[in-house]
């Protein structure tokens, strides 16, 4: 495959894509945990909000979410800022808009994964934590979360694959990721197939790496399996 000197451009795009995916993963995991906590809480308002969040986000296209946040996000941020007395113009760049949109989408699906995982944890685990005098927060972080993790990782791995592929959408609002750089290279070489195919192969490599990473995490989060096989 002759990239005619545009290889480094694709590489720099790959780096942007990786940064975008990892940033969205971290923020999205926080959204997912908060969503699951809200869905399982006794508070009706929280439950309602979380259900509205997952229903709404899972029913609309990710592209629409990216476009809404990129083109409409600054209006919302400026409205919020004006409540605090800040009236300057605020612009949201494509990277921030991308992280926001992708993590909101990831969070909605992750909410369900975490919720299912948390339901799998026996109630006795919580009670045992309390019996040792731990606060609910400490029980959650020390006892529940490590176990939830193990149950949630296969599901989260699939979601990360989806997230990785959805990063391509952010090129539509002008982020210099793989897709965008492939389009730039296409513009001057007039060889769209070559460069989009190169982009596709890079995505394949990235998703394959994500699969390996998930398998590693699955092993690492499960001491029992580790002990038996190694």
């Amino acid at each position: 495959m002759d990239l005619q000197g545009f290889g480094h451009l694709l590489l720099s795009g790959t780096w942007v894509t990786i940064q975008l995916a990892l940033a969205s993963l971290v923020v999205g995991l926080v959204f997912g945990l908060m969503g699951a906590a809200a869905k399982l809480s006794d508070n009706r308002l929280f439950r309602g909000l979380a259900t509205a969040y997952t229903t709404f986000v899972r029913g609309i296209p990710e592209l629409l979410l990216v476009l809404t946040i990129y083109f409409g996000g600054s209006q919302i941020v400026m409205l919020v800022a004006s409540w605090f007395g800040y009236d300057e113009y605020i612009e949201i760049g494509p990277f921030i808009a991308g992280v926001a949109a992708l993590s909101i989408a990831f969070g909605a699906y992750a909410t369900e994964v975490f919720r299912m995982a948390m339901l799998e944890i026996p109630k006795g685990q919580w009670e045992a934590g309390y019996a040792f005098g731990m606060s609910p927060t400490r029980t959650f972080f020390r006892i529940i979360l490590p176990q939830v993790w193990r149950l949630a990782i296969p599901g989260l791995g699939n979601l990360f694959q989806v997230l990785l592929k959805d990063t391509a959408l952010v090129s539509v609002v002008g982020l210099n990721d793989i897709m965008r750089q492939a389009a730039v290279a296409t513009g001057s070489t007039k060889e769209p197939f070559t460069f989009y195919m190169a982009a596709a192969l890079i995505y394949l490599l990235l998703t394959a790496a994500a699969t390996l990473f998930t398998m590693f995490m699955e092993r690492a989060s499960n001491p029992a399996a580790r002990g038996r096989h190694s």
């Binding site: 389009a183 296409t186 769209p192 989009y196």
Partner: peptide, 14 residues
């Protein structure tokens, strides 16, 4: 393993 956007561009532009 590849984004739908790449696939559309491969067919339309490629």
């Amino acid at each position: 393993g590849t984004p739908l956007l790449v696939q559309i561009f491969l067919v339309y532009y490629g």
